[in-house]
Amino acid sequence: MNTDLPLSLIGPIISMIFGVSFFIVCCHISESRRYLWLVALAFFGFGLAATLQVLLIPQDIGKNIILSAALYTLGAQSLCEGLLQRSGQRLGSFTHILTAGFIMVVIYIFYYIDRSLIVRIFILNFGFGALFLMVAIRLRSLRHGRSIDRLVWWVVLVFSLHFFPRTLVTVKLHASTRAAFAQSPYWITFQVTMALFVAILAFVLLTAALVDVIDALKVDRDHDALTDLLNRRGFERQAKELLHQNAGDDSINLVVCDIDHFKAINDRYGHPVGDSILKEFARLLQNSLRSIDIVGRIGGEEFVALLPDCDKEAVFFLVERLRRQLQKKRYQYLPADHEVTASFGVAGRLLKEGLWDWFARADIALYSAKTSGRNRVFLHDRVAGILDRTPEHHE
C-alpha cells in the first residue's frame, strides 16, 4: 500500500499529533479532567491503526487487518467513553466487551473463513457509527447547555452520522471499479474525511477542555474551600445578577446568621471541631433553604442567604426551622448536652438599595439578636425598626 503514501499518511499523522497534544494537556491539568486521557488514547489509537494499514505493518495481511481493526475499535471506544465521562456518564464494561468482541469476531470470520472486504468495511464503519450515535443520544441534554457543550454534541452527532453515507457511497464505487484497495475511492475518501473530522473533533474537544478548566477555576474562585458554599466574591456576583434580573421585585429577603460563641468552641475544643461545625451548619443551610436561594459564607462563622420570591412570613418559617434544627443537633466531639446555636438577622429589600447597604441593615438586626441573648431571629423593618421575631419571644 505504498501508492499515494504521503496523502494516505496525512490523516494518521494529524490524529497522532492530536493524541500526543491531549496527553501533554492531561499532564498539566486537574485530575477532574481525567476523561482527556481517554480522548488522547482515542486519537493516538486512530492514527496508529491507520499508519499500520498504510505502511502494511505487519506485512501479513491477516495480522495487519486484525491489529488495525483492534486499534480502531480501541480508539472508538476510548473516545466514546471519554465523551461520556466528561458529562458524568459511562458506557459500561459489558458494552465495551460486547462491542469489541463482536467486531473482532466478525472481522476474523470475514477474512480467514469467508473473505469479504465489503463486509469488513460495513462492520467497522456501521459499528462505529452506531456506537457514536448511541453516545450522541446519551449526551442529548448537552443541546440545552453552554455553547461549547452544544457544539460538542453537534460535532459528535455529525461524526456519528457521517459513517453511514460515506461507507455506502465509497463501497459502491469500490465494488464497481474493482480498484486496488489503496487506490480505491473508499480509501481516498476515508483518509480525507478522517483527517477533516479528526481535526474538527480534536479542536472542539481541546476548546471544550479549556472551557471546562476555566469554569472550574471560576468555581474554585467563587466558593469557600471548607464548606463548598459561595464565598464573599461568589455571593456578591450571584446576588447582583439576581437583583438585576428582578430589579422591581421587593419580595426578596436577606438573612445574615452567625454561630453563637464560636470562638469559645474553637478555643476549648480545637479548630478541627470548629471546622466540623461550620461544615454541618453549611449543610443544614443548603438542606433547609430552597434551590433558588443564594447561600454563602462571608466570614469565619458568618453566613448569608438571599431568598427571592419569599415574603417575610415564609422567611421566618425557613429561618426558624433552621434555628431549631441546629439547636437540636449533637456533635461527636462535643459533650452530649452542648447546644450549638446561631443568631439571625433578616432584612427585606428596599428598591434601589445597594447590596451591601442592605446587608448592613440585616447585620444590625443580627447584632441585636446576639446582644439580646443569642439564638434569636431579629428583623430590620424600615418602618418599625428592629424587631425580635423569635417565636418564643414574639407576641
Rank of each mutant, 00 (worst) to 15 (best):
N2Y: 04
N2Q: 09
N2K: 08
S8N: 14
I17G: 05
S21H: 09
F22Q: 10
V25S: 05
H28R: 15
L36Q: 11
L38Q: 13
L41P: 00
A49D: 12
A49C: 15
Q53H: 13
Q53P: 00
V54K: 05
P58T: 14
Q59W: 08
I61T: 14
I61V: 14
I66W: 12
Q77G: 06
S93M: 12
T95Y: 13
H96M: 10
I97M: 11
T99F: 14
I103Y: 07
V105A: 12
I113A: 11
I113Q: 11
D114N: 12
I118L: 15
V119W: 04
I123A: 15
A130M: 10
L133D: 00
L133W: 09
V135R: 08
I137Y: 12
L139C: 11
R143Q: 11
H144L: 11
G145Q: 07
S147I: 06
R150K: 12
V152C: 13
F159P: 02
F164D: 04
P165Y: 13
T167C: 08
V171F: 02
L173R: 01
H174P: 03
A182L: 03
Q183F: 08
P185H: 10
F190Q: 10
Q191V: 13
M194K: 14
L201H: 09
A202Q: 04
F203L: 14
V204W: 05
L205Y: 01
L206N: 06
T207L: 03
T207P: 00
L210V: 12
A216T: 00
L226D: 03
L229G: 04
G234M: 03
F235I: 04
F235M: 03
Q238N: 08
A239M: 03
H244F: 11
G248S: 02
D250S: 11
L254N: 08
D258N: 09
D260G: 04
R268W: 00
K279E: 10
R283G: 08
L284Y: 02
L289A: 08
R290E: 05
S291M: 07
D293I: 02
V295Q: 03
V295G: 05
G296W: 08
E301V: 07
V304N: 00
A305K: 10
L306G: 03
L307W: 09
A314T: 07
L318S: 15
E320F: 05
Q327V: 01
Q327W: 04
Q332Y: 08
D337W: 06
D337Q: 10
H338M: 05
H338N: 06
E339G: 00
T341D: 08
F344H: 02
F344K: 06
G345V: 01
A347E: 10
R349Y: 04
L350S: 11
L351D: 06
G354L: 10
W358E: 09
A362M: 12
D363Y: 03
L366I: 04
Y367P: 03
Y367C: 13
S368A: 12
T371A: 08
N375C: 01
L379H: 05
A384G: 09
I386V: 13
R389Y: 09
E392D: 15
H393A: 07
